[in-house]
Simulated assay, not measured.
Amino acid sequence: MSAKKTLKIIGGILVFLTLPSLLLFGFLYFKYDEDLPQGISGEQADVVAQKMLEALDYKAFEDTAVIEWTFKGRRHYKWNKEKHTCAVEWEDYKVVLDLRHHEKSKAFVHGFTLESELAKKYIAKALKYYNNDSFWLAAPYKVFDPGTERQKIDLPHDQTGLLVTYTSGGTTPGDSYLWLLDENYNPTAFKMWVSILPIDGLEASWNDWTTTETGAILPTFHKFLIFGIQNSYIKTSF
């Protein structure tokens, strides 16, 4: 087979593999991409945020000392809010994160303690997992976290939205989330303007909730495009 024909075949394979992806991206981009909205900051936005927290019984969440859950069936967490620690387990690894002093975190594989650079690698990985996965569990309760900015957004059909921008902290500072609220200020979904997604304004549901043993209200499932994000085996204690 000549080199020219080989290149032609390779080119055809590349087009075959990439064209559907490009068409899908183009469809999603023109269907969903939207600019970051601008609203009213200050007291009006803070009132909306407070009403959302009240709808979710924020006090019950605050009074909860320990939350355990499994994210997408892949990673298990035991988050001790009082002690500011979180045990993260996946595959053969376990990392006990110190959420205030990351350098005090410990990493293990098959029960053996990891040291030096290898420990740092898996501690950093666990922290990244925790930042992402705990957000899908507790994001509504983070609207007044340090480094957050809030705006009240007027939406169609007399609905109210709350835009929260994280200017610092987490893994990807600068991300923004627009909470869509029902008439009782319960969050039903949010739209995302985040650095890891190439399309702005994509929406994920927040309407599958469970009331846990301590009264904390936590989400069990999110629908995101054709994907599902599940929080399972949720347990809480004082």
Rank of each mutant, 00 (worst) to 15 (best):
D33P: 01
V48A: 10
N131F: 10
F221E: 12
H84L: 09
L24K: 12
N186G: 08
D35M: 10
H76M: 07
A49F: 05
P140H: 04
P173S: 05
D200S: 14
I234C: 02
Q38R: 09
L99S: 07
K235F: 08
T188F: 08
S168A: 11
V15P: 11
G26A: 02
K31T: 15
A87F: 02
H84P: 00
F238I: 05
S41C: 01
P198C: 02
G170W: 03
L24H: 09
S116D: 15
H157P: 00
T113E: 02
L180N: 01
Y166D: 01
H101M: 09
D145Y: 14
T214G: 13
V66P: 03
G228I: 01
D175R: 00
K78C: 09
P173K: 08
S195L: 01
D154C: 00
L19M: 12
G26H: 00
M1C: 05
G111R: 11
L155P: 03
L23H: 03
T160M: 00
L24G: 00
L197Y: 13
H102C: 03
L19I: 14
N207P: 03
P187L: 11
V88C: 06
D63Q: 15
T220I: 09
T172Y: 13
T214K: 14
D46S: 15
T167L: 04
M1N: 05
R150D: 08
F71C: 02
D35E: 15
D35V: 06
P146Q: 06
A60P: 03
S195K: 13
E43A: 13
L225T: 05
I199A: 02
K142A: 10
D145H: 08
V164H: 08
L53F: 11
K104L: 15
L24N: 06
P146W: 05
A138C: 14
T214D: 13
G11T: 09
N231E: 09
S105C: 11
W79A: 01
L24V: 07
E203Q: 12
P146R: 03
T113F: 02
L114E: 05
W193L: 02
D175Q: 04
R74K: 13
V164K: 12
W193E: 02
Y130E: 12
L118Q: 11
F112K: 13
H110V: 01
T148V: 09
K142P: 00
D63I: 04
L24S: 09
W136S: 09
P156S: 09
E203H: 01
Q38G: 06
E82S: 14
T171H: 09
F190H: 11
A3E: 15
K81S: 04
L178C: 11
I217N: 05
L28F: 13
F144I: 11
Q38A: 07
